[in-house]
Design a binder for these strands. Structure first.
Length: 717
DNA sequence: AGCACGCCGACT
DNA sequence: GTCGGCGTGCTC
């Protein structure tokens, strides 16, 4: 029966995610004679398969299992697996009064399966209603949702809320367009620049399932290259899915696909379309009328039929993290899909995350890279300005801008637009070596050291140990400095320095898509850089040390990714393209930028993470709540033997008014956070233990203020 | 969460 | 006897 549902041993985890409660349940029930599907009312039931297994749509963990209902004869035809239903659900013995069974109200659910008999021993209530005959929840999507719920210690209902859009009756009425036959084989195009580019497309077109981590060359070709990978998959008669970090990237791939294949072959799933249009597009995909899908992260669940390829662009962008529980990351969801559906996988980026490097390192995916001569041909010239240059550069220091930067901007403005990247505000100041600026880390668990407001006391942000005799393991220094970000002013000063040149800004509130090729200063925060017609003549990357100073695990990777994202918009070195980065040239991410070697950087980071017991080599979970709640929770949970608990340590108290991060404590409350880490391969065991403990607690503690569990916490210092 | 069941003390 | 306190457990 379909309860098997093809669990992958895939991805990094081998162990099948288990639902202990369910297993125990079925063992116990197996001794009891199976109930005939009788209802208290004895209404006429469906003659075949009169039992409907229903997933009740309540995001509560201890309800994260199926309930059986009887199928009345009149609903027999419509009550097919995958439809939305409404059922009575609530407490109460079978209170039979006036021939009517009362109790809980009507709630929504999905019909998962039709069965001949139930393993529930009591009498079954009847399905109240089939909301619509549209079978929105396919077996594949259910299997994926379950795998995601297991991976993230979340509930199936929560994941389904992310995966299946709300119904719009009007959208269901309309017929979807006719499906088009597969297109002709596309040319390899600029994929020819990559050593195995053409072979990758050929494999997709031939029905293969190649898996690649693609380090894209700088420049605008990436969107067309993604479109060609999609087209190649369509050739094989299969579908393709591409997840992109934001609306601008979606628009570019949309344009590339339309140019390559014309209209009508692909759907665009983004949040900013209205609910009805969104559901209409989604239905066209579900019904098989459209075989290719592009979109932002919600599209990661798109029910593409006969999936041949899943792809993600720029997996280091944090908008790939879902904001809603259980906060799955698009890359991880696509990894699960590739394993479950045995389809092709393509992770592309100008830069490279450690997770991407790990996929290559473990042999799960192959690198799709260009040779060094290709890189040299398209990358700009990178120059650095470090502290020593600044010190020597007394005149420029007054203006907060080194001479080299002045020269690069002045020269660039003679030939075209110049990009100035300034960091966003809001980085948390933490402690670093005053000499070499390496983040200060705990000698016991390698967590980040945090300075107290006034005093000299240092404490680890993970395990809470006090640190008195700190010295820098990199350079031997023993003085610390707080990393403070001061930015933006520099850009304004720049504008004043070149009064004849227009200054345009692009940032959070107002993001520019493109700028013309004429000379202009374009000031932008990371991620909001407009594309310049013909490429920027130069780029200036300011306050690099501030980006690097955060003791966040990803500080180096993030800084490099942002620099590369800006530098990839600059003309090749041969065409005069120059990038000046104000950061210490000895630092690893700066060197990686100079050599244009993001993959090498990620590989080294990965090795270091393995050594220190960091994710993604180890897997971590964060448990947050009041100190009491955490202590009680940690006593209950049966962690895998190898698990290691760090902390708990107090979390900063949220102040009222400021926008609150997801998962942060309610304003004014004193919360703490513990981290749990397990060695490679034990992630599934950790998630399942945490989920079981949550479920047990909920059932007991009347669902009061509990702890929050977050797998892969993004901000672990 | 709800909501009913049940096993204990004070009351028309 | 029976009304109702809330402690405990279930929801097909």
């Amino acid at each position: 029966m379909s309860s098997e549902n093809g669990r992958s041993g895939g991805g990094a985890e081998g162990a099948p995610p288990e639902q202990l409660a369910l297993i125990r349940e079925s063992v116990r029930k197996a001794e009891v004679p199976r109930a005939k599907p009788r209802t208290w009312r004895g209404a006429a039931l469906a003659k075949e398969l009169p039992v409907a297994r229903v997933l009740v749509d309540k995001g509560v963990l201890h309800l994260d299992r199926y309930f059986d209902y009887a199928v009345p004869e009149e609903l027999d035809a419509e009550a097919q697996p995958g439809v939305r239903v409404r059922v009575r659900f609530g407490a109460g013995r079978h209170r039979v009064r006036e021939g009517r069974r009362e109790g809980g109200g009507l709630i929504d659910g999905f019909l998962v399966e039709r069965l001949a008999e139930s393993d529930y021993s009591g009498p079954l209530a009847a399905l109240a209603q089939v909301v619509s005959p549209e079978r929105v929840l396919s077996e594949e999507l259910l299997g994926l949702a379950r795998a995601v719920a297991d991976r993230y210690a979340g509930s199936l209902a929560d994941v389904l809320q992310l995966a299946v859009p709300p119904r719009s009756a009007r959208a269901e009425q309309r017929p979807s367009p006719e499906a088009l036959p597969p297109p002709g084989i596309p040319e390899a195009g600029s994929w020819a620049r990559y050593e195995r580019g053409a072979a990758f497309l050929e494999s997709l077109a031939a029905g293969g399932a190649p898996r690649a981590v693609w380090n894209a060359l700088p420049g605008p070709e990436w969107s067309d290259e993604l479109a060609r990978a999609v087209a190649a998959t369509l050739v094989s008669g299969r579908g393709a899915l591409v997840v992109l970090p934001d609306g601008r990237a979606v628009a570019r791939v949309d344009a590339a696909l339309t140019a390559l294949l014309g209209e009508g072959r692909h759907a665009v799933l983004t949040a900013d379309a209205g609910p009805e249009k969104r559901y209409r597009e989604w239905l066209a995909v579900r019904r098989g009328a459209v075989r290719a899908v592009i979109g932002t992260r919600a599209a990661m669940f798109a029910p593409v039929q006969d999936l041949g390829l899943v792809a993600i662009w720029d997996d280091g962008d944090d908008s790939h993290s879902e904001q809603h529980a259980p906060q799955p990351h698009a890359r991880e969801v696509l990894l699960l899909r590739a394993a479950l559906d045995k389809c092709g996988f393509l992770l592309g980026s100008w830069s490279c995350t450690v997770e991407a490097a790990q996929l290559v390192e473990t042999g799960w995916a192959r690198p799709l890279v260009a040779g060094r001569e290709q890189v040299r041909a398209v990358a700009p010239l990178i120059r650095t300005v470090g502290d020593q240059d600044l010190a020597r550069d007394e005149a420029a220091r007054a203006a907060r801008l080194p001479t080299l930067a002045w020269q690069a901007v002045r020269e660039g403005l003679r030939h075209g637009p110049v990009l100035v990247q300034v960091p966003r505000r809001g980085y948390v100041p933490r402690m670093a070596c005053a000499n070499c600026r390496a983040p200060a880390r705990c000698r016991h668990c390698s967590g980040p050291l945090e300075g107290q407001e006034s005093g000299t006391a240092l404490r680890c942000g993970w395990c809470g140990r006090d640190e008195s005799g700190w010295h820098c393991p990199e350079c031997g220094g023993f003085r610390l400095r707080a990393q403070v970000v001061g930015a933006r002013r520099t850009a304004e000063e720049l504008g004043r320095a070149f009064p004849a040149v227009p200054v345009r800004t692009s940032g959070r509130e107002h993001v520019l898509d493109t700028v013309p090729g004429a000379p202009a200063l374009v000031v932008s925060t990371p991620g909001a850089e407009p594309v310049a017609e013909g490429g920027y003549a130069a780029a200036l990357l300011l306050d690099g040390w501030a980006m690097l100073g955060r003791p966040d695990l990803r500080a180096g990777e993030d800084a490099l990714r942002r620099w590369i994202a800006a530098a990839a918009l600059v003309r090749p070195q041969g065409a005069g393209g120059t990038v000046v980065v104000v950061a210490e040239p000895t630092l690893r991410p700066v060197q990686a930028l100079v050599r244009w070697d993001p993959v090498g950087h990620a590989v080294r980071e990965l090795a270091e993470r393995a050594e220190l017991g960091f994710p993604p080599v180890s897997r971590m979970a964060a448990v947050s709540g009041t100190g009491e709640a955490i202590a009680e929770f940690l006593q209950t949970v049966e962690l895998p033997g190898e698990a290691e608990v760090l902390g708990p340590v107090p979390l900063p108290v949220t102040t009222v008014g400021r926008p609150r991060r997801v998962g942060a404590p309610p304003p004014g409350e004193h919360w703490e956070r513990a981290l749990v880490r397990v060695p490679p391969g034990r992630g599934a065991a950790l998630a399942s233990a945490l989920k079981a403990a949550q479920a047990a607690r909920m059932a007991r503690g009347a669902g009061e203020v509990l702890v929050r569990v977050r797998i892969d916490p993004p901000d672990i210092g």
